[in-house]
Amino acid sequence: MSAREPRRATPEASPALRAEGIAKAFVSGKVRTQVLEGLSLSIDAGELTLISGPSGCGKSTLLAILSGLQKVDAGRVLALGSDLTALDSHALERFRLRHTGFVFQGFNLFPALNALEQVALPLHYLGLPDRQAQERAMQSLDEVGMTPRIHLRPGELSGGEKQRVAIARALAKHPELLFADEPTSALDAANGQIIIDILHRIARSHGTTVLCVSHDPRLTHHADRMLSMEDGRILSDRRAEPLHHEA
């Protein structure tokens, strides 16, 4: 499947992600904090879904669980038809390698590598030959408008540019699922807007399921669906006007 090939999401499509009665608690010393309890949720394929809520509401934990980075205490997570809760850590790594991309608040780029190398690096582990990895990396960097700066290292890039490289790194794998955690909170307004536009476009043109955790109000205008959380529960679940789909 190519990233260039648009996969239109249809409302009838089976959910890309489904959580069934998931629970998660963290224990620190003698204190046990129940972060999520009996939460169920379906995320449709090819949509940009935004999860917002006050800090400590459990939205990041939910993202970690849905993306296979964290185990649940109870319940089940189905991603692209696979039961993540039944996979061991090796199988989870393989699943993430094939199907998921991540964008974090901090850009987490290797200081020693230039933009092209940052993006090509994970592709090698995917088993792509050097040449193909390079081509794909160039393609992804082009998509985020970074072609003129592919030979620069993170130290020579602005915050917004670094985040665009980080997105290109996630995108180059052609993931079906893209997870983003506060991708704009470290950026100024203009750069934040660019990142939002890119994420929106990815969901639109690639049919990628984008799940984004953020409390950036600008993102809400671009999301297909907005979930707001508090105390480990989903308070509201709103869909955008169809008008936005055509935007």
Binding site: E93, R94, L97, P122, Y125, K173
Partner: peptide, 12 residues
């Protein structure tokens, strides 16, 4: 953090 990001992306 960079290594963790690679691991998140599925690099074992």
């Amino acid at each position: 953090r960079e290594y963790a990001t690679l691991n998140a992306l599925g690099v074992g």
